[in-house]
Amino acid sequence: WVPDSEAPNCMNCQVKFTFTKRRHHCRACGKVFCGVCCNRKCKLQYLEKEARVCVVCYETIS
């Protein structure tokens, strides 16, 4: 899990986070992404309901 303080930009597209461009943690890899790069949901083994995942993890999992 990457702390918010260590991620000033999206770890995929590099967009800078602001008050309106929020950070989202991928529940699969723990990296920090913008809403566009972390907009998929899928079922993870260790969680009961679907969770937010990044586009890279989504392609790997599904």
Score class of each variant (00 low, 15 high):
28 A>D: 15
47 L>W: 11
35 G>D: 14
34 C>H: 01
34 C>K: 01
27 R>Q: 03
38 C>H: 03
7 A>V: 12
61 I>Q: 10
59 E>Y: 06
19 F>Q: 13
49 K>G: 12
36 V>C: 12
61 I>C: 15
52 R>C: 05
35 G>L: 11
19 F>R: 14
46 Y>L: 14
10 C>G: 00
61 I>V: 15
59 E>F: 08
62 S>I: 06
3 P>D: 12
49 K>F: 13
50 E>W: 04
39 N>G: 11
56 V>R: 07
38 C>E: 02
22 R>A: 08
35 G>N: 09
61 I>T: 14
18 T>M: 05
1 W>V: 07
39 N>E: 05
30 G>T: 06
34 C>E: 04
3 P>C: 14
40 R>N: 15
30 G>Q: 05
8 P>A: 12
10 C>T: 00
6 E>L: 05
62 S>F: 08
39 N>R: 08
57 C>H: 02
14 Q>R: 06
38 C>T: 08
3 P>W: 06
3 P>K: 13
25 H>D: 02
15 V>Y: 09
14 Q>T: 12
36 V>N: 08
49 K>D: 13
44 L>P: 05
27 R>S: 03
29 C>S: 02
43 K>L: 12
61 I>L: 08
37 C>G: 02
61 I>E: 15
27 R>I: 00
47 L>F: 05
31 K>M: 05
15 V>N: 07
49 K>N: 08
60 T>E: 12
46 Y>N: 15
12 N>D: 15
29 C>P: 01
20 T>R: 06
6 E>A: 07
5 S>C: 10
43 K>C: 14
32 V>C: 08
57 C>N: 02
40 R>Q: 14
45 Q>S: 09
42 C>I: 12
24 H>I: 02
16 K>G: 12
2 V>S: 03
11 M>P: 04
33 F>W: 00
24 H>N: 03
9 N>G: 13
25 H>A: 02
51 A>E: 11
50 E>H: 09
33 F>V: 09
56 V>A: 10
33 F>A: 08
29 C>V: 01
62 S>E: 02
3 P>E: 15
27 R>Y: 03
36 V>P: 10
32 V>N: 05
20 T>L: 11
13 C>E: 03
15 V>T: 10
13 C>F: 00
8 P>H: 12
10 C>L: 00
41 K>H: 12
53 V>W: 04
5 S>M: 15
41 K>V: 12
17 F>T: 03
3 P>T: 13
24 H>E: 04
37 C>S: 02
7 A>I: 02
47 L>V: 13
12 N>C: 09
42 C>E: 14
60 T>I: 06
50 E>G: 09
57 C>I: 00
26 C>G: 02
1 W>R: 05
6 E>Q: 09
6 E>C: 06
9 N>F: 08
